[in-house]
């Protein structure tokens, strides 16, 4: 939509880019979508907290005893039990957990005794930068490949892209990581095989340490997204308005840009959101392979140490992030689609 000058004095239906978001927030329908989205997210979020809490009930036996192993004093045992609230009846525990969770208190780690929230937030930047970089690499692959494949439907290029993307979807990401390390670190020695350099310490080192894990994650994410981009573009290509656009004698590039890609953006944003959420919680094994100090590795260590509060915290955080990303996608939908925006 253009930033055109007003034609008439009536500005009721006029839309321009700059004022759009603020006007949207005031628009009754968008507000309705927003409020409904937030309500839905809250309901599911409560469910997520309940499930997370329920995890510890599934532990066969006494979680504190299992966590402490064989050598512990009764004092340590009682202290840990009391600190994690496990000495209280279950319904009360749930209420406490719910209340604390919504204030950001996820209990203390069995292992280190530090607050779970602190531990998680320490590791979040590493994972977030990996997930973001992965989605970026993925998009760099998926957008051109998916669009090209759709435009060449049924031809050789399409077949090659489709089979290649199938291979990409089927590759175990940790195996890909091992192969990349073998090639680029052990053999060629171009890039570090593992570890993480914080951006604040050494931007170049940060980038170097990020390349291999990001490519590993991005190749798989890119393959998945290629398939979605392809089908989204194909669907729009088959629509009546694309035929109309062609019947106007518009150049293929204009048709593609204005009538195909623009309309395919909405479904593509969804899959990017889902990929982002998936990567945030799904790069566990890649983090282990690259010794990446993110949430995934933290969770892995927590599992090994039977640090149940930490496991719960990680699961909860990822579930909540997924829901927030989804909510953001829903709001983007409302911004992008006039059928939702103005009724």
């Amino acid at each position: 939509m253009s930033t055109h000058e007003p034609l008439t004095s009536s500005t009721a239906t006029k839309v321009d880019e700059r004022g759009r978001l603020s006007r949207l927030a005031r628009h009754p329908v968008t507000r309705f979508v927003l409020v409904r989205g937030i309500l839905h997210t809250l309901v599911v979020l409560v469910g997520v907290v309940v499930v997370t809490f329920g995890l510890i009930l599934l532990v066969p036996g006494d979680p504190v005893r299992i966590a402490l192993g064989t050598r512990y004093s009764p004092e340590t045992y009682d202290a840990l039990r009391a600190a994690s609230g496990l000495d209280q009846p279950v319904p009360l525990q749930l209420l406490h957990y719910l209340g604390h969770a919504f204030t950001g208190d996820l209990g203390v780690s069995f292992r280190s005794g530090e607050p779970v929230t602190t531990l998680l937030l320490e590791r979040l930047p590493a994972t977030a930068s990996l997930a973001l970089a992965g989605v970026l690499v993925g998009l760099l692959i998926a957008l051109p490949a998916g669009i090209w494949s759709a435009l060449r439907e049924g031809r050789l290029a399409d077949a090659i892209i489709r089979v290649t993307s199938q291979v990409g979807v089927s590759v175990p990401d940790f195996w890909m990581g091992i192969l990349l390390i073998t090639l680029f670190s052990s053999t060629l020695g171009w890039l570090p095989s593992s570890g993480y350099t914080p951006f604040s310490e050494d931007p170049a080192g940060w980038f170097k340490s990020l390349v291999l894990p990001a490519v590993t994650v991005g190749l798989v994410a890119g393959s998945i997204m290629t398939r979605y981009v392809r089908s989204a573009v194909l669907e729009v290509l088959a629509s009546g308005w694309v035929r109309t656009a062609r019947s106007k004698g518009l150049g293929e590039r204009v048709v593609l840009r204005r009538h195909v890609l623009r309309n395919a953006v909405v479904p593509v944003v969804t899959i990017v959101g889902i990929q982002m959420a998936t990567l945030l919680g799904g790069v566990i094994v890649v983090e282990v392979v690259f010794a990446w100090p993110g949430l995934g590795r933290l969770t892995y260590e927590a599992v090994a140490a039977r640090d149940y509060p930490l496991i719960q915290g990680a699961v909860l955080l990822m579930g909540a992030l997924f829901l927030l990303i989804n909510l953001a996608v829903d709001v983007l939908y409302a911004v992008a689609d006039p059928r939702i925006r103005q009724r």
Partner: peptide, 19 residues
Amino acid sequence: TSLNPLLTLERQLTEGPEQ
């Protein structure tokens, strides 16, 4: 379905003559 749901009528009417 013959008109693009995401574009204003103006855009859909002007693109032919502009071209």
